[in-house]
């Protein structure tokens, strides 16, 4: 069941655009999040990621992730001032060692950045199902795309088999592992049996590929489930415009801001609005989609 979900991804408004564009969007968001070390921009990214995660991953899963992420943020906030003894506003002092507020805030920001990146990644893997990624990759590097597709098919098969080999060894009493050492060798044996079995079968797979015209032509084509339509072109232009604006704004914001020695004061600024728009884009699309179907249902 969970396997099926990982495979198909979840329906969000995202399906309306080409997977290549979906991939680009997440790549851009991740790069911006990782580069824009500025408290407001980071907070925008973190909140957007969190909201989107609630939306596509469900509140239970998101809360579970948060339980792991919050300690991470706190650890970053604690560890950074221990090593980076920089700043001007002293909080406490242990003899030679002083803890500064600036360095605590820097640690918090670093933690928040890591947390946002992880959240964005987990949202992306919900939206970008494996076959979308492979469709994009297959368009650029057909053979490599095919190899990854083949490996993706084999992994669940191999894990199933690994478990089977283990249970067979368990069920033959006289060969059943007894000591701890036996248990380890029995596990290692699983990998060996699995390897022999799988490689042997791979010969048959090679035959199946040859029988279906592998290498018939130098120009292998790729079946495109997704096409790049005029709408996608429009969407990419719009996205490009937004991304350029946001990058410039983020650059300005970051260059005007510094943590050390004294943290700059943060003020209200119109430049945060386009940035928030970019980060909240999937959520907005999702809400519009929901409303649209709601109205459809009523009509």
């Amino acid at each position: 069941m969970s396997n099926m979900l990982r495979w198909q991804g979840k329906n969000t408004g995202f399906e309306l655009i080409h997977p290549g564009l979906q991939l680009t969007y997440f790549a851009v968001v991740l790069v911006l999040t990782m580069t824009a070390m500025q408290p407001v921009l980071l907070t925008i990214s973190f909140i957007s990621a969190l909201l989107f995660s609630f939306c596509v991953r469900g509140w239970q899963t998101t809360l579970k992730t948060l339980v792991i992420l919050l300690p991470l943020v706190i650890i970053c906030a604690v560890i950074n001032p221990l090593f980076a003894m920089m700043g001007s506003s002293e909080v406490v002092r242990f003899g030679q060692h002083a803890i500064y507020l600036e360095s605590i805030i820097f640690g918090l920001c670093m933690g928040m950045m890591l947390a946002s990146v992880i959240l964005w990644f987990s949202c992306a893997s919900k939206i970008l199902s494996t076959d979308k990624v492979l469709a994009v990759l297959g368009g650029v590097l057909p053979v490599v795309g095919l190899m990854i597709s083949m490996a993706m098919r084999l992994v669940p098969q191999f894990t199933e088999r690994g478990k089977l080999i283990g249970s067979v060894a368990e069920s033959v009493t006289s060969a059943r592992p007894l000591t701890k050492r036996d248990h380890i060798t029995s596990r290692l044996r699983i990998v060996s049996v699995l390897m022999g079995w799988s490689l042997e079968e791979s010969l048959q797979s090679a035959d199946a590929m040859k029988a279906r015209g592998w290498g018939a032509t130098n120009k292998r084509t790729g079946y495109k489930r997704y096409r790049f339509a005029a709408f996608d072109l429009f969407a990419s232009l719009a996205l490009a415009l937004l991304v350029i604006t946001c990058s410039v704004l983020a650059f300005v914001a970051c260059s005007q801001f510094h943590f050390y020695p004294t943290m700059s004061t943060l003020t209200l600024w119109w430049g945060y609005i386009p940035y928030a728009l970019l980060m909240l884009l999937p959520l907005v699309v999702r809400i519009v989609e929901d409303l649209r179907f709601k109205w459809l249902g009523q009509a």
Partner: peptide, 8 residues
């Protein structure tokens, strides 16, 4: 196959 084996 080896890549998938390592992953498995």
């Amino acid at each position: 196959v080896l890549g998938a084996l390592a992953a498995a």
